[in-house]
């Protein structure tokens, strides 16, 4: 996933992901593999009004973004979709930093160099 937007006012991955998607990713990085139902139960504790539909749509959106992947699992309780992470948190953050620096270098090359060298000192 290549971030297309960086919100300066937001903290952590919320700077590049909408709040609920960021929350889902935080949980998914802890769990690594989960069903939408499991995520719903977790998020419901913090957001009592959240609906199953919202979690399902957002998890599928994260699949479209390439941050999660969806597989069919057959086991006890029948067939179901299980979602798993495609990237670790560290790899994701690295990608974000790389994309932002690449954008800065192509748009404000001199200023970026100057600032980075000042930071090094």
């Amino acid at each position: 996933m290549e971030p297309h937007e960086f919100k300066l006012t937001e903290e952590g991955i919320r700077a590049v992901l909408p709040p609920l998607e960021a929350e889902i990713m935080e949980e998914m990085w802890k769990l690594k593999v989960a069903t939408a139902g499991q995520l719903y139960e977790i998020l419901k504790e913090r957001h009592p009004d959240i609906r199953r539909s919202t979690v399902s749509i957002l998890m599928n959106r994260l699949c479209e973004r390439g941050l999660l992947k969806r597989n069919v699992e057959t086991g006890r309780g029948g067939m179901r979709y299980v979602y798993s992470i495609t990237t670790t948190r560290e790899e994701f953050e690295e990608k974000v930093v790389k994309s932002i620096l690449d954008a800065l270098m192509s748009n404000f090359r001199e200023a970026t160099y100057a600032y980075l060298s000042k930071m090094k000192k």
């Binding site: 609906r51 199953r52 069919v72 067939m79 979709y81």
Partner: peptide, 9 residues
């Protein structure tokens, strides 16, 4: 569909 089991009880 499997999606039905994600959104309904």
């Amino acid at each position: 569909s499997l999606g039905l089991f994600e959104v309904l009880g």
